Amino acid sequence: MKKKTEARRLAIREAAGQVFKELGFEGTSMAEVAQRLGYSKATLYSYFDSKEALFYEVLMDSTNSQMDEIFQIIEKPLVNLRKDLEVLGEKITELLYSEEVMAVRRLLLSEAGRKNELGLKCYQAGPAQFLSAISQSLQNAMGRGLLRQSDPEVAALHMRALLEAEWIDHFLFSTSKSESKIKIRATTGRAVEAFLLAYGVPMSKP
């Protein structure tokens, strides 16, 4: 019975994900999702108590595996500073500019100001956790003398901004789709270079 329940819950999330992409958050109704599946609205509400709850789980489905991989990287102490930051930066950029996450980000942007509680919940589940974890990693590196002493949270924000610098306008104006690993590696390398120019420890002169 449990397997059947989980299978139905997954089917609902998958169908809802497609409807959200097609119609946006406001344009999507529980009735529409139910119709796509051939279920009653009562069945949907027995699994998800609101459209917001359903949207949140769809978001988590699209990002969980990649987020777990990124957190595993962040939890390891930075050793080879440039290389480790590049590996982390590539994974973050791959996540942010994957087709699935770009679609979710566009949905959230389109609903900005109308569903603040949903936006806050999504922020707390993703970006806020990343910011906290990266801040701790950078603070550890600062404590070991690998980076200059500074506010680690601000440094983490600067790092994320640099990673997105060559992508954000194309995303906002929908001028490109997700890109190749080669381009991601190149843009990440330039972002890390700029970050280390700002936060790296100057080499002492002989």
Rank of each mutant, 00 (worst) to 15 (best):
T93W: 03
L108M: 15
A161D: 10
P152K: 02
I182E: 15
I134Q: 03
S98C: 05
P152N: 11
K183W: 04
S180W: 03
T93G: 00
S150Q: 08
Q149M: 08
E86T: 05
A128V: 04
N116Y: 07
Y97Q: 02
E153S: 11
H158F: 08
S135Q: 05
R82P: 01
K91G: 01
S180C: 04
A112M: 13
S178M: 09
V104D: 12
G113P: 14
A155F: 11
F171Q: 02
L147D: 02
V154A: 13
A156R: 06
E86L: 02
V79D: 05
S180K: 03
E153R: 14
L81E: 02
D151A: 11
L138R: 10
G145F: 14
H170W: 08
M102N: 04
E179P: 01
E99H: 12
V79T: 04
M142K: 07
L120H: 07
L108Y: 09
S174H: 11
L146D: 06
A103Q: 10
M142D: 09
Q139T: 03
E90V: 04
Q129N: 05
M159V: 01
S174E: 15
T93K: 01
Q129R: 15
M102A: 12
Q136C: 10
A133E: 12
I92P: 00
S174C: 09
D84N: 07
K76C: 04
V104Y: 07
I92C: 03
N140D: 14
S98R: 08
L146F: 11
Q129I: 15
